[in-house]
Design a protein around this nucleic acid. Structure first.
Length: 1000
RNA sequence: GCCCAGGUGGCGGAAUUGGUAGACGCGAUAGACUCAAAAUCUAUUGGUGGCAACAUCAUGAGAGUUCGAUUCUCUCCCUGGGCACCA
């Protein structure tokens, strides 16, 4: 019954892994077929699948165990897709421009090219040792002139379309190192390198107009399948907000400015034009104030994290509120920045927390113009009843001794309310409340404490009057001084009785008929709540009573403003004063201005620094080190032929990664960044997995480039990536990030050496949820290694092919397991193992799609634990299991598969293979399918609960009726103990799960 | 301050999305094999009480909804990541 060559081999990962890596590479089994090659062949019929990981930055430290996690994850996806019949493109390359290499070059004087070569060699060797199925024939490197030629070319397309431009902007400047720093290089306001506090300095920079695409970058997120957090991250970063620009006419402005015909205006941007009647001041950024008056007010907007106190100075200027006509003061403040919106905002302290804080501090007027609108959900307005408007009060009476509050329990309607009543003409709120209290409950001696904020508009049906009410309620708080009462009329006494309760008790009261209750409660305990939500307008001239959302549009029209959408997203600062980046391919000519380098002269190669010039540091004036190489800088103008200078700025390291996925489709193309044919065939990336840290910058930048190329009709799809997921970091054993400086880096080389690549791969997938950060634990690796050994040892229990084909007989060609046959070979166990196998196939097939690799592996373990208990296992079952496992542990599964194969009639190749002849790789075999009929058990164990507590379990048949099952449960001995002498109130049955008996 | 993710045994983590909480693995304890150790195998392993059957408590804390809550709702507390007064 067993394969009996007698010799059981030990699992030796060292022999197996490099052997297969070499064979796979030689046979090129992971190469993707381009359309031109596969045309007319069988491969062309395969659907394409493009899976992508973020290509690594080859640092000098080499790979640590965190790097491969995403590669392994997507490798599993890619391998499964290949087995499912897809033509898979799974490429890798090097994002090799960047600071660490440059800093290393500055320190050591070594050429970054040499350093990069060394680093990529290390990375390549390490990644290859893990058996990731990358198509290495498509390896790219962003620092290769053949690659960055196209990065430069794309930049020039931006330039030609006017989307790349020069602007003077503030940059971070390190006064010690005399260089400009990228935002990423500024740590807590100080230079990353030397710790000196960073200054702002104005400098000319190349910019890319990403804001032109802001709207589309936001909207098109609807069409892609990204994890929700990723979409949200992008949306927040883009920061789209709809509002309006409204002009405020100024008075008392500088003489020379008032001579304009229509007077001077300040334009504000607001998302709440509906609150315009509540504007009591204008708040402007210092720059804007300076333009108006020429004065410097000594106010600075600083983004410093510590100093958040709002400060401001009254400019003395007045502006006219275009809605109310009121004259309001104009303040310079430190909480309005000049570069967002218009640099001026309406101060609405009634409905904006910042304005409120500011107004409180400087004693500015606070006006309430929007009130909450409440629709009573217990007694909502009814359709055909007339609507009556009332001004009304609710009186909240507190007993100062007990802190309890008074409510009325209505006898006829089952309501609990405060004392409620209308306000009569010419009556103030306090007297109205006192009158109502006297009428309804008779208390004479009360101290008025305060009114709880402004009114609330409440819509409800008043059953006792049979009419719909639209009431404007005020809540007034009184303290009871003593119990002295007047006699209340019989009529009132019959309506309700009094009740003293706490706020908490009242909330829980199911009969509470006061929709405003929560508002009153919040205001009672915190009297400075700024109402920022939509509602109903008050004190707003002809707009009073209008719904705030509707009022927005009408008020914009009324004041002559215009609707406007603003974004937080800024244009992209694209210049770096650095050596190790793509040179910006622009020539500056005194006569002709900025001229693009002609296509034929691309790439503009980064000049090598030699001899005395060998200094990778930026210059004293903060220019890139390229500025020192006059031979390179001085050139001729392509337009007029006169003397001209090259641009010495280089591109940020985001540039090369903004389009690399396109190059993978056609890496050797010298005429285009990629051929139309290949781009069309491979289309958008089907699945892109990357780190959370790139969900905003890199992902947004590359979407932007892609959309631009789409507009030029150079790429076929609107979006570059159809699906985006992210992986969590692997943290060091203390829970910190792995870093060389902390000395807590785990090098995968050692793990591969000791345990093998398959073990490392399985462990990284088993550690925890793929999307979540996990802590490395070398101690736990042994578990998956043991598992692999058990998989290995199982091959010696596999039934011999003769016994196997005998037992399976006629069913072999269909390759479908059948109970009938399985039962014959090993009577007791094989039917249950084939059921377990089918369950495993289903679970693994599904869980891979949601990247639940950890549960896949525990499913494998369960299978192996069961299979190991058997005396023998059918080859078919074992083979299917190996296939399932092969994307996770490609080496060991291939080794076992190949050693089983020579004895077997292959379902995938005709006829009998000769011993020793290499059959097809397991990685090119077909992904197993499960048989739905074999998954379900015939008998199912279900749980019986009494009052939600598990008391016992019973077995039921699959097709058993609900009534039968309930009866079984009721007559169960254990259950009877809990149900005798009790009334059975209800029985719940959840199919195939449980019965819950509710007793009293 | 705002946004996002998360909080479950000694540890990493499961839980069919409202239905047996703790799958699977690590570690630990005991036993088998061994002269012995390692490896391997077998059993046990959330807390408390009990010889036991069993009972009872338990998913950051507190409330709520429900026959039933790790899962839904509200409030609060921690941990990790991102943003900086965005009008």
């Amino acid at each position: 019954m067993k394969i009996s060559n007698g010799m059981k081999k030990e699992y030796d990962h060292k022999k197996i892994e490099t052997k297969w890596q070499t064979i796979w590479e030689k046979k090129g089994i992971y190469h993707a077929s381009d359309p031109s090659i596969s045309l007319g062949t069988s491969k062309s019929k395969k659907p394409k699948y493009y899976s992508l990981i973020e290509f690594p930055y080859p640092s000098g430290e080499g790979l640590h165990v965190g790097h491969p996690r995403p590669y392994i994850g997507m490798d599993i996806i890619s391998r499964k897709r290949r087995m499912q019949g897809f033509n898979v493109l799974y490429p890798i390359g090097w994002d090799a421009f960047g600071l660490p290499t440059e800093n290393y070059a500055i320190k050591t004087g070594k050429d970054p090219r040499v350093v990069t070569k060394k680093n990529t060699d290390t990375f390549r060797r390490q990644i290859k040792s893990l058996g990731v199925s990358f198509d290495w024939s498509r390896e790219i490197n962003t620092t290769d002139p053949k690659y960055y030629k196209w990065t430069q070319w794309i930049f020039l397309q931006f330039f030609k379309k006017g989307l790349a431009y020069k602007a003077r902007i503030n940059i971070n400047w390190c006064p010690k190192d005399k260089i400009g720093l990228a935002n990423e290089e500024v740590i807590a306001g100080a230079c990353e390198r030397c710790g000196t506090l960073v200054e702002k300095r104005e400098k000319e920079q190349w910019m890319l107009a990403i804001t032109k695409y802001a709207d589309r970058l936001c909207k098109d997120l609807d069409d892609v399948d990204y994890l929700p957090q990723i979409k949200l991250g992008q949306r927040n970063w883009i920061g789209r907000s709809e509002g309006a620009e409204i002009e405020f006419l100024m008075s008392c402005v500088r003489q020379d400015l008032t001579q304009d015909k229509g007077g001077v205006t300040i334009k504000v941007f607001t998302t709440r034009p509906d609150t315009i009647f509540g504007v009591t001041f204008l708040a402007v950024a210092p720059e804007v104030a300076k333009k108006l008056t020429g004065k410097d007010y000594g106010i600075k907007v600083d983004t410093d994290r510590e100093n958040k106190e709002k400060i401001g100075v009254d400019t003395g200027l007045k502006a006219k509120n275009p809605a109310s006509g009121e004259m309001i003061p104009v303040w310079v403040v430190n909480y309005v920045s000049a570069d967002y919106g218009t640099g001026a905002v309406m101060g609405v302290p009634g409905h904006d927390e910042r304005d409120f804080e500011f107004a409180k501090k400087y004693n500015l007027e606070i006006k309430e113009v929007v009130i909450p609108k409440v629709i009573d959900n217990k007694n909502p307005p009814r359709e055909d009843k007339k609507e009556v408007f009332r001004n009304a009060i609710q009186a909240i009476i507190i007993d100062p001794n007990t802190k309890k509050i008074l409510s009325l329990k209505w006898k006829k309607f089952n309501w609990t309310t405060f004392i409620v009543g209308g306000v009569e003409n010419n009556e103030d709120l306090v007297s109205a409340a006192r009158r109502e209290i006297l009428e309804e409950v008779g208390y004479k001696n009360l101290k008025y404490i305060r009114t709880l904020g402004g009114p609330v508009e409440s819509h409800f049906f008043a059953a006792h009057k049979d009419e719909n009410r639209k009431a404007t309620f005020f809540a007034l708080v009184f303290e009871l001084e003593n119990e002295e009462k007047v006699e209340v009329s019989e009529e009132e006494k019959e309506k309700h009785e009094l009740s003293w309760t706490t706020w908490e008790e009242m909330v829980k009261d199911k009969n509470l008929a006061c929709s405003e209750f929560q508002i009153w409660q919040a205001r009672f305990f915190n009297n400075e709540v700024v109402y920022m939500e939509p509602g109903i307008l008050i004190n707003s001239g002809k707009f009073s009573g209008m719904d705030s959302e509707q009022a927005k549009k009408e008020i914009i029209k009324f004041v002559g403003g215009k609707e406007k959408t603003t974004f937080k997203l800024r244009d992209w600062v694209f210049s770096r004063q650095r050596y190790w980046g793509e040179p910006i391919p622009i020539i500056n000519c005194k006569n002709c201005g900025y001229i693009p380098v002609p296509d034929k002269d691309l790439p503009v190669e980064l000049p090598k620094l030699t001899g005395k010039m060998k200094n990778y540091m930026p210059t004293d004036s903060g220019e890139s080190p390229l500025a020192n190489i006059s031979k390179w800088v001085n050139t001729t103008c392509p337009t007029c032929g006169g003397k001209a200078k090259r641009e010495t700025d280089t591109m940020p390291n985001w540039a090369g990664s903004s389009w690399y996925y396109l190059r993978y489709t056609d890496v050797k193309n010298k005429k285009e960044f990629a051929s139309k044919k290949n781009l069309k065939y491979w289309g958008a990336v089907d699945w892109y997995n990357g780190g959370n840290e790139h969900t905003t910058l890199h992902l947004l930048y590359s979407r932007f480039w892609h959309k631009f190329l789409y507009d030029l009709k150079l790429v076929p799809t609107k979006e570059p990536y159809m699906k985006r997921t992210s992986h969590g970091l692997i943290l060091a054993e203390g829970g910190e990030k792995m870093s060389k400086s902390k000395g807590n880096v785990i090098n995968p080389d050692e793990i591969v050496k000791v345990y093998g690549a398959d073990t490392l791969r399985l462990y990284e997938m088993f550690m925890g949820p793929f999307h979540q950060s996990v802590v490395w634990s070398t101690e736990s690796i042994i578990g998956v290694r043991r598992f692999i050994e058990r998989v290995w040892n199982l091959q010696y229990k596999v039934a011999s092919p003769d016994a196997f084909s005998q037992s399976l007989g006629p069913s072999l060609p269909s390759a479908t397991p059948s109970k009938k046959h399985a039962g014959e070979a090993t009577p007791v166990h094989n039917s249950s193992i084939s059921q377990l196998l089918n369950q495993t196939i289903k679970k693994v097939t599904e869980d891979i799609e949601t990247m639940k690799f950890n549960t896949c592996i525990s499913t494998f373990m369960i299978f192996i634990n069961e299979a190991s208990k058997l005396d023998s296992l059918s080859l078919e079952v074992y083979e299917k299991f190996l296939k399932l496992l092969s994307p996770f542990a490609p080496h060991v599964t291939e080794e076992i598969w190949q050693s089983l194969y020579p004895y077997q009639t292959s379902p995938y190749s005709r006829g009998r293979r000769k011993e020793g002849v290499n059959p097809t790789s397991i990685h090119l075999s077909k992904w197993p399918e499960w048989d739905p009929n074999l998954i379900q058990d015939e008998e199912i164990k279900i749980v019986i609960q009494v009052n939600g507590k598990v008391r016992t379990e019973i077995l039921i048949q699959v097709d058993e009726q609900e009534e039968e099952i309930k009866n079984k449960a009721l007559i169960n001995d254990v259950i009877l103990k809990y149900t005798t002498n009790k009334t059975i109130k209800n029985i719940f049955y959840v199919k195939n799960r449980l019965v819950n008996i509710v007793v009293m």
